[in-house]
Amino acid sequence: MGRLPRLERDQVGPEARAIYDTYLKERGNVPNAFKIFAHLPSYLTTMIDHYRTVMFTGSVPFQRKELLFLHVSRLNACRY
């Protein structure tokens, strides 16, 4: 169990719930990190926007960005 309570679908407002529903449909679950960001809905919505902007726009191929993201996560020994 993480250090902070995860906010489930019935504990969040419409803005976050819409995001939960998108991920439930796309991947079958809501990333647990989102359920922590959801403590501040605007952080969740802007974080997702920023993530998508950084990873999916620009001229560096997405696949290379994913490898960079993975490499950093391995360097940080991040289990998530």
Binding site: M1, G2, R3, L4, R6, N29, V30, P31, N32, A33, I36, V72, S73, N76, A77, C78, R79, Y80
Partner: peptide, 13 residues
Amino acid sequence: WNRFTTALRVDLS
């Protein structure tokens, strides 16, 4: 993301 999820021990999705 790494530091956020690690410091808060966010369980694996």
